[in-house]
Design a protein around this nucleic acid. Sequence first.
DNA 1: CGCCCCTTTGACCAATATCAAGTCATGTGG
DNA 2: CCACATGACTTGATATTGGTCAAAGGGGCG
Lengths: 208, 208
Amino acid sequence: MFARVADRRKPNTIDDIGFASASHQTVNLVEFTYRKGAEIYGENEPAEHIYQVKRGAVRTYKMLSDGRRQIGAFHLMGDIFGLNNGERHRFTAEAVVKTTVRLIERKSLQTVAEADAVVARNLFSMLTSNLEHAEDHMLLPGRKTSVERVAAFLSEMDRRAGANTMSLPMSRRDIADYLGLTLETVSRALSRLHWAGVLTLSSVKKPI
Amino acid sequence: MFARVADRRKPNTIDDIGFASASHQTVNLVEFTYRKGAEIYGENEPAEHIYQVKRGAVRTYKMLSDGRRQIGAFHLMGDIFGLNNGERHRFTAEAVVKTTVRLIERKSLQTVAEADAVVARNLFSMLTSNLEHAEDHMLLPGRKTSVERVAAFLSEMDRRAGANTMSLPMSRRDIADYLGLTLETVSRALSRLHWAGVLTLSSVKKPI
DNA sequence: CGCCCCTTTGACCAATATCAAGTCATGTGG
DNA sequence: CCACATGACTTGATATTGGTCAAAGGGGCG
């Protein structure tokens, strides 16, 4: 059981590649780039920022007591993450691939929100969309078979990536930990969807 | 597959047993009592009220395309439910047992919230606790075995009911649909927990 | 080029779903 | 008051699915 944890790469250090600062509505924006696998924030760490994915993809997860990892969400380009009411992050966030994020200071955002009803409303609706995603993910146990789950996952990614051909930056293990399956089962399910003609090779094999 | 749906009782009509009105902070409070199995609101219906459980218990669920039912949450005494940002309810709500709820008009609440920062903050934190529950439930697929899932469920109910002996108003099927198991598996898991001495008969067999 | 990591695939096994029977409590009508 | 129907639960036998263990491609990067 703990093998899963043991053979996971040590968290990488932050790549200080990109660093830009801008002022927008008195909210400080900072960009940061993380390399593949790097931790953006850890579970229970003080939540001092919220984040937006500028480029790349992020996974947020919790480790369970038995060493399993449950991924709660993938965040793609444009998505906001790290937003929660509490003082501390409830999940760990890692870059799935080399990823650039915008950081927004929690405090400064809060200040603006209290003065500006529009910002407050936006915060509220961001929180709501987080909730809706969580609720959708909650429906997963109802999706019984592995093929159904994987198909639902692909459908979600397809919808969200929006673009022509969908890219799947995350590994089989990531998908498995998102769906509550093993990576072998995910692989088999993808194969079966293949033979069923639902997928073209290009749409799965990371076209870019 | 559809048998599951077919053999489910038609929604009962509302029992107009209790009806009381009070004025509190310019928000209209109305009480309503539903009998066991009665629908409180349906998925996709306009969300004109939010609710608080005064007595009894409520389940909120979605029907999946194949006729399966996924219960998203149980709401016990004191819990607020039906709260979401959108115009329409995303789940169906039903009384698990004879249940009395307080209704609060969405509009009037919104009016108060915009004037009163405290009310707004309360709304925000209620939404957050909803989100946290959903996130916790999202971790379910990680809990592999049926016994683990049922134990986690009991633990949750124990924590929430708070009282001395816990009552489980919901049926095995409800629990199953909450945990993504079958009712037989839930029954077996409860039996095993029994033999393991984790449960006393009284704590499961609805002491009241 | 060769190593490493990710993925695929296979064989086997354990766990849950499914199908089915039987118990128990409750309620109903003769 | 009893016979019977009904619904919720438990328990058993069997089938199916996904997990586990293992081996073998295949692609990228030093």
